[in-house]
């Protein structure tokens, strides 16, 4: 406990939240909200829903403040909650509508299919601009299974170790090692044609990837964004 308290500023903040310090809770929310929403957006496919889920995550954290005992990095705990909430949300969505869309739009901030011209083979030597690369990466991420995607996000952006990712996902560190190895291989298969030759991940690639990974649950546009 002392180790985590000393090394993880989030743990120190959370302990202050447990003492009903509103400033500490605000600080925690501000520190994690952007990344949490981004990760959840990749999990559930819509930023609007991701914000709602993120809010629920923070509220659960807050409600548990009196029971909180640091036994891991704060982000491990946070994303463990987030994973469960995202899983439940996807189950609800799956129950609500069985129709599945062929392609995920992993977030609402610009995750569209690649521009056909930019993605065509007509510009193999062109240096991809930022937007194209972003789109290609988003499409590649969309080819990953749910657990692979979460593991990638946690490793890449939360800098969690295998053991910590294992705590979040309920796996052993060895299992995470294999999971991440497969995920990175899938990402390489999807992205290298683009990085090397400007060829975007195609629908066919996506379809094949989806067919290979039965665990993936696609995102359902069942609730219109009304604002």
């Amino acid at each position: 406990m002392a180790r985590y308290t000393a090394s993880d500023p989030d743990v120190r903040l959370m302990l202050r939240v447990g003492e009903d310090d509103p400033a500490a809770f605000e600080e925690l929310v501000r520190r994690h909200q952007d990344r949490l929403i981004a990760v959840l957006t990749y999990q559930v496919g819509r930023r609007e829903l991701a914000e709602e889920l993120a809010q629920e995550v923070f509220l659960r954290v807050y409600r548990a403040r009196k029971r909180y005992a640091p036994g891991a990095k704060f982000s491990t705990w946070l994303y463990h909650i987030a994973t469960n909430i995202a899983l439940n949300a996807r189950r609800r969505m799956a129950r609500k509508k069985e129709v599945r869309m062929p392609i995920i739009s992993p977030d609402e901030t610009g995750a569209h299919a690649l521009d056909p011209v930019a993605a065509s083979g007509a510009m193999p030597t062109r240096v991809a601009d930022r937007q194209e690369l972003r789109s290609a990466v988003q499409a590649a991420i969309a080819t990953l299974g749910e657990r692979q995607r979460m593991a990638v996000m946690l490793a890449k952006f939360e800098h969690l170790g295998y053991a910590e990712i294992g705590e979040v996902l309920g796996m052993t560190a060895q299992g995470v090692k294999s999971l991440l190895a497969r995920a990175r291989e899938n990402l390489r298969d999807a992205l290298e044609p683009y990085l090397d030759h400007g060829i975007a991940p195609t629908d066919q690639t996506l379809s094949l990837s989806l067919a290979e990974d039965r665990s993936i649950e696609l995102i359902l546009p069942d609730e219109a964004d009304h604002d």
Binding site: P22, F25, E26, V29, R30, Q33, D34, R35, I37, A38, R47, E51, A54, Q55, F58, L59, D107, T109, G110, R130, L133, R134, A136, V137, Q138, I141, V152, K156, F157, L187, L191, L195
Partner: peptide
């Protein structure tokens, strides 16, 4: 490293206020 291109959109202040 290409994953660094993934956007992390800044959450609006409204989300923070409502959450708090």
């Amino acid at each position: 490293r290409a994953l660094d291109a993934l956007p992390v959109e800044k959450t609006d202040a409204d989300f923070t206020r409502t959450t708090l």
